[in-house]
Design a protein around this nucleic acid. Structure first.
Lengths: 346, 346
DNA sequence: CTGAAAGCGCTTACAG
DNA sequence: CTGAAAGCGCTTACAG
């Protein structure tokens, strides 16, 4: 009982297993990883000893020797926002099922984003694949990503060269706006995000869908009818307040996310107006709480996006070189924040 | 142009830097990590070459040689739920500021939880520290964790032996219930979670606070007044429906989370009753959307819990051996889902 | 089917 | 202040 306790605590190495099983380390390695060319008896013996010693290969040593990390990275613009937490949740399911660990990156600030791109070289050593969520890539970055050894899958944006998972934002937005048009609305606002420096497709495409639906109905997408909400509850509140005090006040508004839509509904009510009798509001997402608030919205399968993208990444790592673009379905969910133009309470 | 292109793509090793800077690999290693005993000129030269070659030490090789991973792990019961996503967000901030990468684990199912505990030995090789969120540890597990080499910090539960971040759930719940008592309510329900097999303190403590506040006011915590909502929106809805149809119907309910409270409010309304005129509801958390819904609640600093816990873990890894128990403040936030007993609309 | 040896890319005493 | 050498714990050709 001199210095053995420390010994007990120390986890077993492949050498320990090899010596106890009376085989070479090479054989242990092969046996444990299910490689061929190991006699059944030998394999059994190794497995038994490994189990007894609770042996697990040191992941860092494995990576160094073999090049595989059995980890994947995932980068989101921000944690703690509903959409991203759902995508992460779905992706995690796929990774866990495949036995991959998840390294999570949040690229909130420009500095963090720059560092992430800059550290790509280290990243490649840490992960076998990378899931990029709403990370707008400029042409140079795109080229770098395309030629990287690490497999990449994108959620939210579609790029040539690697797989992606998106929804048809333009079409879905058109559906939302046509719903409002069918209710008799002619002055229909839009709350999204200001145009960014990079072609982030999500708000741009939804705005395009809004504009197209209006034009097809011979309505005019006036500048006064647009506001930016930054995809937050407070931003939606602010944006709606702005629309309510503009020269041309809308009778209905299409909002790019449910969280912004909830802020918008509150702004309408604070203004002494009723939803939907005075102003209709339709969101986008189908947030967990949208049903509670009776928010009409465009549902998109957020958790599934993550799950599908995660699986695509696992497939790519496994050697699948196809680069499919999955476009998931959306659906208009009618609830109680939209109603006929000039409609009264039912 | 025969086989050089591949060469270009390959990232630089410490050997490349050493040879270009005309020093040994040992010197490069020391210079880059800011260790003493490097001549200023030498350091400068190494830094320059490293920058030119965009060199980063291979993390796996470093770990293997030095034992540090510069990664931390974080385990939550579930992703995609508001509370956990906020805690993760806060912790991530602390980790990122300290330069640590984050390995994320979700322990949804019992099988995943068991595997997580069982794989502790591998985990210890992958991370320098572990943040455990609402992971109920039984005595054996606790002992294993305490003696582990890896540093551990707990959020939500307090254990002897390592740091933790919690709120005073019992006291906070009492505040909530006394608020209802002060409004004149005498039949006050409780929506929480059924007692689990392990002493998960959060719902137990809140229930204790409910019971204590009632007893202090000479009210009786009838079994009929309790229901389990599983911390989900739908669960809250179901639990409230149960309370509404029980023999003793409460005039006010204390709910253990805002998400459950939102489900509860909806259930009340679907029952043809008004909130708060017929039934008062108070939640717990101060969810992002609670203000939108005008939900009265107990605010707890969720993001801060994560941030503080993350920093405690960083400190512990850095060698801080104190094991402080941080108890963060809570606050009653009065909004519009609670009102006087028998009160009319204002 | 199995083993001895080299090597993955670093860091750490140890000498100087 | 600097370098040569050993070693971290695996995996991978290569022989046999």
């Amino acid at each position: 009982m001199s210095d053995t306790p420390a010994q007990l605590d120390r986890s077993a190495t492949i050498e320990d297993v090899a010596s106890q099983a009376s085989v070479s380390m090479a054989t242990v390695s092969r046996a444990l990883r299910g490689l061929p060319n190991v006699a059944p008896d030998t394999r059994l013996k190794v497995l038994e000893v490994a189990k007894k010693l609770n042996y697990r290969a040191d992941p860092h040593a494995s990576r160094l020797a073999a090049g595989k990390t059995f980890s994947v990275g995932m980068a989101v613009p921000q944690l703690g926002r509903w959409y991203f937490s759902q995508v992460i949740s779905g992706a995690r399911d796929a990774f866990a099922a495949a036995g991959y660990d998840l390294l999570l990156f949040a690229l909130g600030s420009g500095a963090e984003r720059a560092r992430f791109i800059h550290e790509w070289a280290v990243l490649e050593k840490r992960v076998d694949g990378l899931l990029l969520v709403d990370l707008r890539l400029d042409p140079d970055e795109l080229e770098a990503v395309r030629t990287a050894r690490t497999k990449v899958v994108s959620v939210g944006d579609q790029y040539e060269g690697f797989p992606s998972v998106t929804v048809d934002n333009k079409a879905a937005a058109s559906v939302a706006v046509r719903h409002l048009i069918n209710l008799g609305h002619e002055t229909i606002g839009y709350i999204g995000d200001g145009p960014g420096p990079l072609p982030f497709s999500v708000p741009n495409d939804r705005r395009a869908g809004w504009e197209q639906a209006l034009r097809e109905a011979n309505l005019v997408p006036l500048a006064d009818l647009e506001a930016s909400g930054g995809f937050t509850v407070e931003g939606g509140h602010r944006a709606m307040t702005q629309l309510l005090t503009a020269r041309t006040r809308p009778t209905a508004v299409f909002v790019c996310s449910d969280e912004m839509a909830m802020g918008a509904v509150k702004a309408v009510r604070e203004h002494g107006l009723r939803v939907p009798q005075d102003i209709s509001v339709i969101g986008f997402d189908d947030h967990d709480l949208s049903e509670i608030i009776d928010l009409t919205t465009i549902r998109q399968p957020v958790v599934d996006s993550g799950r599908v993208a995660g699986q695509l990444l696992i497939d790519a790592i496994a050697g699948d070189t196809s680069a499919p673009h999955h476009v998931l379905p959306t659906e208009l969910v009618l609830r109680k924040t939209t109603g006929p133009y000039g409609g009264r309470a039912d």
